[in-house]
Design a protein around this nucleic acid. Sequence first.
DNA 1: TCACGACCGACCGACCGTCGGTCGAACTAT
DNA 2: ATAGTTCGACCGACGGTCGGTCGGTCGTGA
Lengths: 235, 235
Amino acid sequence: MNDCWMITFLYYGCRTRGEHMRITKEHDVRRNEILDTAEMLFETKGYSNTTVNDILREVNIAKGTFYYYFKSKEEVLDAVIERHLEKGLERAEAVKKRKDLSPAEKLTQVVLVLRMAGPKSEVVDELHKPENALMHQKSLGGIIRGLVPILNEIVEEGIRAGVFSTPFPEQTVRIMLAAALTLTDDAMFSYTQEERQQLLEAIVYSLETLLGAERGSLGLKTHLLQGERGEEEKA
Amino acid sequence: MNDCWMITFLYYGCRTRGEHMRITKEHDVRRNEILDTAEMLFETKGYSNTTVNDILREVNIAKGTFYYYFKSKEEVLDAVIERHLEKGLERAEAVKKRKDLSPAEKLTQVVLVLRMAGPKSEVVDELHKPENALMHQKSLGGIIRGLVPILNEIVEEGIRAGVFSTPFPEQTVRIMLAAALTLTDDAMFSYTQEERQQLLEAIVYSLETLLGAERGSLGLKTHLLQGERGEEEKA
DNA sequence: TCACGACCGACCGACCGTCGGTCGAACTAT
DNA sequence: ATAGTTCGACCGACGGTCGGTCGGTCGTGA
């Protein structure tokens, strides 16, 4: 075994570049390496601007290896989004179950928690629209499909508690979520600070209205929605 | 001069295919040919599935000609969307100016009018999400940017007339428009007939609520919103 | 009046670099 | 041995470029 290592090492030493190292890893480890790298690159350079070769170079694997784990570049996108989504949904679910929060507080808390590690948050991606259209559309769809049931349960709880009131709980949630996600997508619209503030106010106000909630019971901390970005780096 | 024509004609006649004809046209004529063809193909096969070569073949021009008129495939997309948008906004504007309609009626009329020639309506495009993400994102953004001011004026008129009432007229319009467009995008979500009906009801209901409009003053004809395929059963 | 040649916008299509994806050989661990 | 991995040469399609062609027009001089 050690012999093998020596041989490999010497061979590698002969090459001036770091090429041609054959490194075997556990399935999930390798898969996650690819996913992590892809995620980083997608957020940094945009999806369509990220080449499969870019990922290859970064992960230090060959084309074949990549396609051994994923059948297409788009499948990687799906997986990246899926992972993000799961994490977010878990957190939302956790908030839903908390006993120390009122339904209204849960609603704002879910939003807060999702914003912290939402589909975006990185620094240098001022590259907008075209290169990420697919990515945005897919996450939007996923978030709505996944989050609506959770939020709906919270709303129904609120209705039972008498603090909310609406004939269309689920659809209301769907509508306001879709609007909020679409309109706050920096890739699609750009606002001044005031415009943004006004939009968020209006969203909170509308949600309160549609849910028949007491004025001010949601939001209030809307200013938190725009600042703050969660940083998470690793090596 | 006529000689030249003869030569060209004979040369053409020698070829079995319609190749190698040099046909000169006025700038705008040619440009619109390209645009028309591109629009058709984008709607038929989807944007990313449509090749520049597809367009070339259909219009019967060479690569160079295409790039003489447009600097990229995406620029054609923009132009196509722009054209659509202009047409739609004109119609909306026309509705806004009508004196024979109440503000509420204008609102529903605008929606109706846009649905008729909206970004979708064609026949065989069951090809969904990925190939049209860019197209959808771009039209969504354009429609919202263009339509919000018009709808807002209608709403403000309604407020002045005392039939609407809201502290955030423009933002309300923006929110509901974004939600409606996003959620009714077949490329992103698929509903059963009942789900769709319920969603549309909820949208109308929500809009009435947010605008402080009389219940039933908007919508009522929501069933028209889903027809558009020539299949109208229940009323 | 006409001929001619310079000019120019429209047009052509071979060619190019890049990219997503394939394939079969080769390596590793068991 | 063999199943699970990894490799990288290779492929075809695609968006885009480039040097050059064609034919109409217009100014000029015979």
